[in-house]
């Protein structure tokens, strides 16, 4: 088994190849956010490091978000095209699940958080269960105040893990909640997905869709289309 993982939902993208015994190769890019140019060369890099061709990959897993829309689409489009071309099974996962999985040994209530931009956050609450974590709530989008209020209302001790927490430090500190900065990464994603491949709980590439949690901005792109040779924006 050789799983290709791609995670591009935050400012830090990563790609990993994970085999039965763990991570074979991985690559990640910091906050530069050039997902478009990073992902495919990173896949190639991982294959080369592993000394295998694309034909050796047995499954593809990709982060479905929520997160940065453009980044998500880059990761998903690359992953699903690769998988479709090689006729491979895929597993799509929320980056929030991956974040919570990264702290699965914590006995507190876990809140996984990803920056939603525009002054908002995406989050969901989790609890550790044997072998992993279990999501307790829907995926939500809202302000840091709303997150703090929701956590406070549980009356439980919580750990908040995620990205974009600087936006929420003030509110979370105020209610005395511990935070831990992290991003979902491709190696954890692939590890989390591996049992799904083993149990053949997989999807078809065309089934993969980003988790947007917000409607599309309904602004016509005259400006975006108004380009050099014709089309000054008006």
């Amino acid at each position: 088994m050789l799983i290709l993982g791609i995670e591009t939902s935050t400012g830090q993208s990563s790609v990993a190849l994970v085999g039965t015994d763990g991570v074979v190769a991985s690559a990640s890019l910091g906050v530069a956010r050039r997902h478009g140019e990073f992902v495919a060369p990173a896949v190639q890099f991982c294959l080369r490091q592993a000394g295998v061709g694309a034909d050796r990959v047995t499954g593809v897993t990709v982060g479905l978000g929520p997160g940065l829309y453009t980044g998500l689409r880059v990761g998903i489009a690359t992953a699903q095209a690769f998988a479709a071309a090689r006729d491979l099974p895929v597993v799509g996962m929320s980056g929030l699940d991956v974040l919570a999985f990264q702290v699965r040994h914590v006995r507190r209530l876990i809140a996984a958080v990803i920056d939603a931009r525009r002054g908002e956050l995406f989050w969901a609450l989790y609890r550790a269960v044997p072998g992993g974590v279990q999501r307790q709530t829907d995926l939500r989008v809202g302000t840091a105040e709303q997150l703090a209020a929701e956590l406070e209302a549980t009356g439980e001790e919580c750990l908040v893990i995620g990205d974009g927490l600087s936006r929420a430090t003030h509110e979370l500190d105020r209610v005395g909640i511990e935070t831990f900065a992290a991003v979902p990464d491709a190696a954890h994603l692939a590890e989390l997905a591996r049992p799904r491949f083993e149990r053949e709980e997989t999807q078809r590439p065309a089934d993969l869709l980003p988790i947007y949690l917000r409607h599309a901005d309904a602004k016509i792109g005259w400006e975006a289309r108004g380009r050099m040779q014709g089309g000054a924006a008006t």
């Binding site: 992902v39 495919a40 489009a77 690359t78 992953a79 699903q80 095209a81 998988a83 071309a85 090689r86």
Partner: peptide, 9 residues
């Protein structure tokens, strides 16, 4: 991105 996925595969 999709074109790259196909080309890689």
């Amino acid at each position: 991105s999709a074109a790259k996925g196909l080309a890689l595969a």
